[in-house]
Computed example of a mutant assay.
Amino acid sequence: MSAGAAGRDLITALARAHGFDVAGVAAATAAPQRLADLTAWLAAGMQGEMGWMTRDPEKRAAPDALWPEARSVIMLGVNYAMAGDPMARLARRDRATLAVYAMRRDYHDVIKSRLKEFARALVAQAGGDVKVFVDTAPVMEKPLAVEAGLGWQGKHTVLVSREFGNWLFLGAVFTTLAIAPDAPEPDHCGSCRRCLSICPTDAFPAPYRLDPRRCISYLTIEHKGPIPRDLRARFGNRVFGCDDCLAVCPWNKFAVASRDARLALREDLDGLRLADLARLDDAAFRALFAGTPIKRTGRDRFLRNVLIAIGNSGDAALVPVAMERLDDAAPLVRAMAVWALARLLAAPDFAALARRQAAAETDPDVRSEWEAEGAILRHSA
């Protein structure tokens, strides 16, 4: 079954009717470069703890390998730009900085619902079968979005749109309809390197190549254990994700703040005090972040991030807050409390605290934090 020019116009109309800001079409066939890039990325171990990235690379690289009946992929995008500069919050060291996408309802839920509505309407008017995806299957959304003409992958590997800058949520509709694909969007980065230069942890070994193992977004969200010691001081007050490389892109000058009511920013999540976040128990954590992507990370990993931000704050008033977490039930939280206190306390005070606390610690990871900080003190004395 095929869809002609009228079918392509129908896709645009249905996209707008169901809450999408942009739509484009890519072929469902394999693009050799997709698989080559993915294979090289995996061979370098760039997936870190994201083990699911290693499963079915052939299906991830080719939509018609994932679903043999697929003939076309309709890529849809929703603008989520905020008003103002997302990086302005980094200066408030006693407050948390959250990624812009996380300060609202979980986009997976919102976009998945809209994709289903769009797909039902498409089938009703044009026929064919469909499957919808939003970060829930081995689908390479960004390369497909490039092929569908929605934008290009910048040097930071994120999709950049001439109309919406760096702020697009993506969803995919696989269809058995054979629809003429759109022309891919060419790269418009030119000689600009702002996204590469701004990265706090030097997570870009080369343009167009991201090492997630050094990326604050990966480390604060996907990584399960202690944050690597050499990177913690670079996190600042970023406790969930990082928008730096997105926010500095010159193409954002064309973006207009989203007016999408279902994805509206939650004002109560802007400027949260680190002291309040560090005192969240599991029930309070779940209540505060209900319906957002943050909830999926879990309380312990989130407090790990908060305590790193406390250590980076330079605010001695937060010492009692970090002290409370030395008795936390989660070893991961206790370990980061040790690190935070080592940065906030004077060396003699931390040494005295270590003598009282370290001997009673039973978890090896927490003991290693005490030992590492003690060794640093002895070396610097």
Rank of each mutant, 00 (worst) to 15 (best):
L277S: 00
A31G: 06
I74L: 09
L210N: 04
L307M: 11
D363H: 11
D106H: 09
A23D: 02
D85K: 08
G7Q: 12
C242F: 09
A354M: 13
R259Q: 15
A40G: 02
A36R: 13
V160D: 09
D187H: 09
G298Y: 09
L66D: 09
L210C: 02
C242E: 06
I198R: 00
I294S: 06
S2E: 03
A13K: 15
L38Y: 08
L210Q: 11
E185D: 13
R299V: 12
L168P: 07
M336S: 14
I74G: 07
E69W: 10
S2W: 06
A359Q: 14
G77S: 13
R105H: 08
D109M: 09
P331H: 06
A275D: 12
L38N: 06
R92F: 15
P57N: 06
R194D: 12
L150G: 06
R286C: 14
D276W: 08
L332Q: 03
A91L: 14
T362F: 13
R325I: 10
L341K: 14
V22W: 03
A247L: 08
A180G: 03
P212H: 06
R34V: 08
V160E: 12
V321K: 10
I221Q: 03
P205K: 08
F289K: 10
V132K: 05
G7K: 13
G225L: 03
W67C: 01
H156A: 12
L288P: 10
R378D: 11
K112Q: 07
D9W: 15
C242P: 01
L168K: 07
Q153H: 07
V239D: 10
K131V: 02
R92Q: 15
L76V: 07
A172D: 01
L318A: 06
R301M: 03
A342E: 15
M1T: 09
V306E: 00
D260C: 12
E267P: 03
G236P: 04
R232N: 07
R273P: 12
H108F: 11
W41G: 11
L38W: 06
G298Q: 04
L272V: 09
R259P: 10
P86V: 04
D106Y: 05
R89W: 15
K155F: 06
L219P: 01
A360P: 12
V134H: 14
M87S: 04
L344W: 14
A178L: 05
N252Y: 00
V248A: 07
L246I: 01
D349N: 15
